[in-house]
Design a protein around this nucleic acid. Structure first.
Lengths: 163, 163
DNA sequence: GACGTTATGTCAGTCATGTTGACTTATTTG
DNA sequence: CAAATAAGTCAACATGACTGACATAACGTC
């Protein structure tokens, strides 16, 4: 054998890289199809998702999460607001801020998409084994740039558990 | 406790979904930056990568792998050929076919990008533990749509081990 | 050898999503 | 009051997808 057991050979690593490409494509395919029926795209999905999971988010927070420009965000956000999926409310403390919330309709769509994706994820994890969820979180977290990890960790943990 | 040990709670699943988004973004960031210096984008990367790993690939095979239209592929492929990163050779048996190969220059770039990505992957896997590679492959494979798995498995395994 | 099929290439137009750069408005803060 | 901040907007552009239509060359079959 070229590589000792438990250690990744170069070909194993390339396989992981390629598998990630196909996995990500198939993972986003389901939501994409639903979004299309609403006239939305993946960009709308991201905005809706993070607002749903983090109610009261400010525009600046969203820019920080998505790492796109204000102008790119403005386009999709405006559409989501115009179509009544997201609601803006002037901040209580600072009235320059626009706090973002999903509407009932927006919440329904966000839930629909998240259900689709968590089912996909759950099914994949079930295929792998009992400790898969813990493992996947550690793996995916380690794939994130070190400089982003603290930020992402806070975002993912804090996310709205208002059952 | 809401969920028994080893079983993913809904919030764990959502965390995985979100982590995958950030992980994928950071994973593609490195190659993107290099590609930019060549005037290439992510689309070029995919073409170059799969041709590098599967020398002699036909255009039709590439379309099947990437699942984009002929016209979309044509644009990036033409640029890669024009700039001398990919070489076309008429098929020996069937002279309608154009077999695709990377040039020396193309191979160098492909190798550079793959090294970047496998290092990223290896570092993430090392963070997780000794069995991480095996686990990641199983997880990512399970994330791929069932209808695609056989196809992807063949592609990933067959890939050029001509060291 | 003519004809239908296949592999590839190409022209033209559109859409989604990202980018830069410049500027406005409302509000808070020093 | 002046400066800084949060957000919104206008204009132009790049990338990478898409559809639809059509062209060319080579293969295979009757």
């Amino acid at each position: 054998m070229a590589a000792p057991a438990g250690v990744a050979s170069p070909d194993d690593l390339v396989a992981c890289v390629e598998l990630l490409f196909f996995a990500y494509r198939d993972f986003t395919g389901g939501p994409d199809a639903i979004l299309e029926t609403y006239g939305f795209g993946r960009a709308h999905h991201r905005v809706l998702h993070f607002v749903y999971r983090n109610p009261g988010l400010r525009v600046a927070d969203l820019l920080d999460i998505l790492r796109i420009t204000k102008q790119s965000l403005a386009r999709v956000l405006k559409q989501l607001i115009d179509k009544g999926f997201i609601i803006q409310r002037t901040g209580d403390d600072d009235r320059r801020e626009r706090r973002l919330f999903v509407s009932t309709k927006g919440g329904r769509l966000a839930e629909k998409l998240i259900t689709l994706q968590t089912r996909h994820m759950a099914s994949a994890l079930a295929n792998v084994g009992p400790e898969a969820s813990e493992f996947a979180r550690r793996f995916l977290f380690a794939m994130i740039a070190a400089s982003d990890r603290a930020h992402v960790e806070a975002l993912v943990k804090q996310a709205a558990p208002r059952t």
